[in-house]
Amino acid sequence: MQKDLISIIIPCFNEEEMIPLFYDKMSGIMGATHMVDFELIFVNDGSKDRTLEGLRVLTERDSRVRYLSFSRNFGKEAAMYAGLKYAKGDFVAVMDVDLQDPPELLPAMYRILKNENYDCVGTKRVDRQGEPKIRSFFAKLFYKVINHISDNHIVDGARDYRLMTRRMVDAVLEMTEYNRFSKGIFTWVGFETKYLEYSNVERPAGKTSWSFWGLFKYSIDGIVAFSEAPLDIASVVGFVTFVVALLMAVFFTIRTLIFGNPTSGWTSLVVIVLALGGIQLLSLGILGKYIGKTFLETKRRPLYILKETDEELKRDE
């Protein structure tokens, strides 16, 4: 009887310290799981350190290891899409190389997909211990906001770490948009998903490539990708501002007719002008964000450009 194949996609950006640790951990899991075969697909997202060299060594040592290397940094979203596209497995997992996604959950995830009526087993953190409090606060705020303004519900604390059936992976690959937000895409395609909870795990080595500003921009992209509420807000604010301005015009006209036209009022006029200007710029910024995303989509640029793969390395040998 032929074994199932599990493909594991691991995006990497400047992770030379973590790759050996991740491989050693996964080797133990793969060695103890005899019911399936594995392939590890590392995606080098334009790393500037010795990440690629480390992947070449692993590929020569273990036939289960594959890698894709981009011509430059295209981002984690592009790396995940590339991995999904090249994965051959009956089941496909997405994992971070920093070991904050516990590999020991994989056997349980596989058993659930085989024995229960699910197409995806995801993971979510039940706490954010060890994470800066300001970052945790804004993360929770993001989930509250996006679930309030979007029809696409995203589980608070959900990770990209998940194991999916082939039919779900094929559905995700049909979503070829340039501006990607995978947490939203995984939810949007549907399919029954079960979540496993675990406590937060800190990375054992290296530094995260996600800055606070990077996460903030990523959250804005997620909101824009799955909600039109910001456009509605801009429209409502514009309408309310117009009504307030109209009422104020009536008020000042009546006051002038009754009490005359005193020279006072310069401060209030400046405040009103600045407020209206700020609201207009905010509305234009929101509109510009959507137009910018549309502009990028119409260019039809590739999500990534491959510079090297393990298959080319093997052909050269």
Score class of each variant (00 low, 15 high):
R300H: 13
L306R: 00
E177Y: 04
N152F: 05
I19G: 02
V270E: 06
Q129E: 15
L274V: 14
K48R: 11
R300E: 11
S69G: 08
D37L: 03
F251G: 04
T33P: 03
G214Q: 10
N117P: 02
Y81P: 00
G31V: 06
A108C: 10
D24A: 11
L281H: 02
E116K: 10
I286T: 07
S47Y: 01
S71E: 13
L141I: 10
V121N: 05
L269K: 11
R64Y: 09
Y198V: 04
V250D: 12
F251W: 07
V273P: 08
S268C: 04
L276A: 09
V36W: 00
F181I: 02
I134W: 08
I272W: 14
T294D: 09
N117C: 11
P204Q: 08
K114I: 08
I134K: 01
L284Y: 00
P103C: 06
L40F: 13
L296A: 05
M30R: 13
N152E: 12
M30W: 07
A234P: 00
P107H: 12
N152L: 06
G122I: 03
V237H: 04
G46C: 05
G260L: 04
R66D: 10
F137R: 06
D62L: 06
D90N: 15
R128P: 01
L313T: 00
A78Q: 07
L274Q: 01
I223E: 07
R162L: 06
R167G: 03
G278H: 09
E17M: 00
R167H: 13
L105W: 02
L247H: 05
L40A: 13
F70Y: 00
L306T: 02
S7G: 10
L282R: 08
T294G: 07
R66Q: 12
E308L: 10
V126A: 07
L173F: 02
E39Y: 02
L163Q: 06
A205N: 01
A82P: 01
S283I: 01
K124N: 07
D160Q: 05
F242K: 14
E228Y: 13
K314G: 00
T241K: 12
F142W: 14
R300S: 14
I134F: 13
G83S: 07
G265S: 06
G184A: 08
E15F: 01
K217H: 07
M80E: 07
L106F: 05
I112T: 08
D127C: 11
K85E: 15
T256C: 08
Y23Q: 09
